[in-house]
Design a protein around this nucleic acid. Structure first.
Length: 868
RNA sequence: GCGAAAGUGGCGGAACCGGUAGACGCGCGGGUCUUAGAAGCCCGUACCGAAAGGUGUGGGGGUUCGAGUCCCCCCUUUCGCACCA
């Protein structure tokens, strides 16, 4: 063992050895319990960043722990390799996306390997491999055959900057999720997956994830699915045979309806205005609203705008004539695209009616039983109180009125209970090159025909000119487009769309279980062994899209008989970001920290800099920390230790250079004390059997702390995964060893018992350090005379008896205020504690002249003397 | 507006079931070693106070022998959704 710790040297040594000995490669073994530890696959951006370090350090700590606990741990890695950025980069560099992506993978892989994460690299996949995306195509065809996919002309969100279609989710907020450019709409034929058929299942499944997934992820998914119970109500259109149906969750307020309002896109609009004086004006207005919606950045609530169409509808409950309007705030995508406006019961309707002076009536009592006249209302009352002015339903509580009025509508044939979701079908096609080709053929005779299975994969052609505007680059590749129909053999055209990359990430972790299977997506038995994923770790940004789509896809696979379970991920941890301050000069924009003086002014111009709140790291803000540079400074172990120690895994953590130094310093400290004891322990190991009884105080103290800390760290891994406090505990143990070492120094000799106690402590320390800093742990373990990798070592066990304190400190309170402390034997009885507390002079001083009302004794913790 | 989370020393954070607030680390101060420095090792470090003692977990109430922890009201911050009828 070397006297000094050289992280670069030992990290390289162990990374090579793990690879050579295939230490982390695993096979199914029905005799052993399995644990599937999964980190989200990496997008092939080209560089590893600190977020990767954080994500994989968390996962690796758990993988190491579970492995040492005897689990057969599957811990794989792969690449999310398709997608727009590679295509954009390729266009810019004049290369092709495949070359760009392959080189990004090579770079990132070599970077990530320097972190020494315990991956089974034999299972590595990249989603751009034809061997992988072949099965995307296979799934696509199976889903098409079962009617789970369909095509429709639909306005797609289009990012004008990246020239790509976006899903609703990717365009949420009206801007491109990647580049922030305002989104425009374009009408295109699109492929959709009927995820809405699974809305209820996806919602119900969330119940079983409660407590195992973060609350906010569950809340976001519930909100995204957006289930509402209500009713469809059909309103006849006056003087016609037509009717318009609205969706409402508050049929109990229907007597307060003062208008029917349609979305500008509503299909009945043309008919309603036909022959009316308003015809031209209304249609022009509708067009304007549609245009605004298209171009508008919808981040802020817009002012409500509407126009009367000239038509009237009949309220089926009271035959009242209601004007039909159109307005910008009614969405065609939700419900039926038409609403009944109830100003007294809905804030939006109230605002709208006030703006256009549409009269209305009150239909609710306030909570204290008053009826506020419409003219005096300041706002709508959306509460569920008592119904008034509502015919035979007046005087009922809202809930009951709602139920009875729905029944009435059903009985009279003008309405029925209905459930509506916010969730939309998932548009899965993209008009881009770098993705899985849609395996479909358009035949003039036979229509849409899937590519036969034996012709899969449909391979993405190489050497395609990407810099075409409009449509897909594949449209411009005749040898790809022109094919023959598998049914009739006649000339036909290939579908030139590619799939949304979320398809790729839906089932990659199933594929890890059987990554080289060329006969099927995976062997069901292998997946049955490993899945569900026991612990999934990734960024919160995937809370909705990825994690809903993959839950959906798993259910589709279940319905194909490929898997037997509903929820593919048992536990989810969303890790926080690593953040750092950023500095901005009014003159010189973003500054590197070294360009800022000590008194926070700009080095170039002397102006005071604005200090950005702790922000996500980015190159442009000059606050990024490059993991490879950090590894070059102190090594991967120190980097991993730092990111885990900075805070609990799910919280954002602040980067600190001195904290990083501290992590490295801690490892050096471990090394130094291990070096000092190593030869004593290794030398003594041959005779073995040193006495562990009749120990001196300082020896018992170390043993006790070892067992206490093993217990604390073990429980933490099992229950909370607060890895930062595990590391604190390891530091405490190390401090304890130093204190022990000092005591040994003081005693003037090193006894066999000292060596035995030290051996136990080092064995525990080294094994428990492995999940956080595996390289140094392996090296130390080897130095302490073990041949086998720590990966095959067992996690230390604790002995509750040994962990027990002999002497304890008991707090003594008077009326809940701390007054004194007692040092007593851990076995002291309640009564002994009570007596000792009452005899304490600080207590007698504080209670002098008062009556002791009662004495509360919490065994081994505290005595509270209550006086009056 | 709706939903979720969070507010604790100079800083990152501990305190898991209501029971000694501030573990561990950073920073800072002191000591030791050294020709000197660095590193290491040791000690100290919530605030006020010379001390006795007092005050302290965003603010205000409450429950309790006892509240960072539970309940009510309010403030602030972050994140997500946002005209979803």
């Amino acid at each position: 063992m070397k006297e000094k710790y050289f992280p670069q040297e030992i990290e390289q040594k162990w990374q090579r050895r793990w690879a050579d000995e295939k230490t982390f490669e695993v096979k199914e073994d029905p005799g052993r319990p399995e644990f599937y530890c999964l980190e989200m696959l990496a997008y092939t951006s080209g560089r590893a960043h600190i977020g990767h370090v954080s994500n994989y350090s968390i996962g690796d700590a758990l993988a190491w722990y579970k492995r040492m606990r005897g689990f057969n741990v599957l811990h794989p890695f792969g690449w999310d390799a398709f997608g727009q950025p590679a295509e954009t980069a390729a266009i810019k560099d004049g290369t092709d996306p495949e070359a760009f992506t392959r080189s990004a993978i090579a770079t990132m892989k070599s970077q990530l390997q320097r972190m020494g994460i315990s991956y089974d690299w034999s299972r590595e996949i990249a989603t751009c491999d034809p061997e992988y995306y072949k099965w995307n195509q296979w799934f696509f065809i199976r889903m098409f055959e079962r009617g789970m996919l369909y095509r429709k002309l639909s306005p797609v969100n289009w990012c004008p900057k990246e020239d790509i279609s976006l899903s609703n989710e990717q365009a949420s907020g009206g801007v491109c999720w990647r580049c922030g450019t305002p989104v425009i709409q374009k009408e295109l034929m699109q492929w959709f997956a009927r995820i809405t058929d699974y809305a209820d299942q996806l919602l119900e499944g969330l119940d079983q994830l409660e407590g195992k997934w973060p609350d906010r992820v569950i809340a976001m998914q519930r909100n995204w699915i957006g289930k509402s119970r209500g009713a469809h109500v059909r309103f006849e259109i006056a003087d016609t045979i037509d009717s318009v149906t609205v969706f409402t969750t508050r049929i109990d307020t229907i007597f307060g309806t003062n208008a029917i309002i349609l979305a500008p896109e509503h299909p009945l609009l043309a008919k309603i205005v036909e022959g009316k004086v308003q015809h031209d004006e209304v249609l022009a207005f509708a067009d304007e609203l549609k245009r605004e919606k298209r171009g508008g950045v919808q981040t802020e609530e817009q002012e409500k705008k509407g126009m009367f169409t000239g038509g009237y509808a009949i309220n089926p409950f009271n035959r009242e004539r209601l004007p039909i309007w159109i307005a910008n705030f009614v969405l065609m995508e939700y419900g039926t695209g038409a609403i009944m406006a109830v100003p007294s019961g809905d804030e939006r309707d109230f605002e709208f009616s006030r703006k256009y002076a549409i009269p209305f009536r009150q239909i609710k009592l306030t909570a204290d039983g008053r009826e506020i006249p419409p003219d005096e209302m300041q706002e709508a009352d959306e509460s569920w109180t008592i119904t008034v002015n509502s015919g035979q339903w007046s005087g009922l509580a809202s809930e009951e009125a709602n139920r009875l009025m729905t029944e009435y509508a059903e009985a009279n044939g003008f309405g029925q209970g209905a459930i509506t979701y916010k969730l939309r079908d998932w548009g899965i096609s993209r008009q881009r090159y770098w993705g899985t080709p849609v395996p479909m053929i358009h035949c003039p005779t036979d229509g849409i025909v899937p590519v036969p299975d034996d012709q899969l994969p449909v391979v993405l052609p190489k050497g395609v000119n990407l810099a075409v505007s409009g449509g897909s680059p594949l449209d411009h590749v005749p040898e790809y487009v022109n094919t023959t129909c598998p049914k009739c053999g006649g000339p036909a055209l290939r579908d030139t769309d590619t799939m949304d990359t979320f398809v790729d990430s839906n089932w990659y972790y199933h594929r890890y279980c059987d990554p080289h299977n060329d006969a099927q997506p995976f062997d069901a038995a292998k997946v049955a062994y490993w899945l569900p994923v026991d612990q999934y770790i990734g960024g919160i940004e995937h809370a909705v899209m990825h994690l809903i789509y993959t839950r959906y896809w798993n259910r589709v696979m279940r319905d194909f008989g490929l898997v037997q379970f509903d929820e593919p991920v048992t536990r989810l941890l969303t890790q926080g970001m690593i953040v750092k301050e950023s500095y901005r000069c009014p003159e010189h924009e973003w500054l590197f920290p070294e360009e800022v003086t000590a008194d926070k002014t700009c080095k170039f111009c002397g102006r005071p800099v604005q200090i950005g709140r702790l922000e996500k790291m980015s190159k442009s803000k000059k606050n990024a920390v490059d993991p490879i540079e950090m590894i070059n400074i102190h090594g991967a172990d120190a980097l991993r230790l730092f990111v885990l120690f900075a805070g609990p895994p799910e919280k954002d953590k602040e980067w600190s250079d001195s904290g990083f130094d501290g992590a490295a310093r801690y490892l050096q400290r471990v090394w130094r004390i291990a070096y000092k004891w190593q030869s004593r322990i290794v030398g003594a190991s041959s005779d073995g059997g040193e006495p562990l009884s009749d120990l001196k105080d300082y020896q018992r103290q170390l043993r006790r702390r070892v067992h206490q800390i093993v217990r604390a760290i073990t429980e933490n891994f099992e229950e909370r995964l607060h890895l930062n406090t595990c590391i604190s505990s390891l530091m405490e143990l190390t401090n304890e060893i130093y204190a022990f070492d000092q005591a040994v120094e003081k005693s003037g000799e090193v006894t066999a018992a000292d060596v035995a106690v030290a051996r136990e402590a080092f064995e525990a320390l080294i094994r428990m350090l492995a999940p956080f800093a595996p390289h140094i742990s392996e090296e130390l373990r080897e130095s302490f005379g073990h041949q086998e990798s720590l990966a095959f070592a067992r996690w230390p066990e604790f002995d509750a008896e040994l962990a027990r304190e002999e002497q304890i400190e008991v707090a003594v309170q008077v009326n809940g205020k701390l007054r004194s402390r007692l040092f007593t034997s851990a076995e002291a009885s309640d009564d002994e504690l009570r007596q000792a507390a009452l005899a304490d002079e600080k207590v007698t001083a504080a209670t002098a002249g008062k009556d002791v009302v009662k004495v509360i004794v919490i065994p081994r913790k505290l005595v509270n003397v209550v006086v009056k």
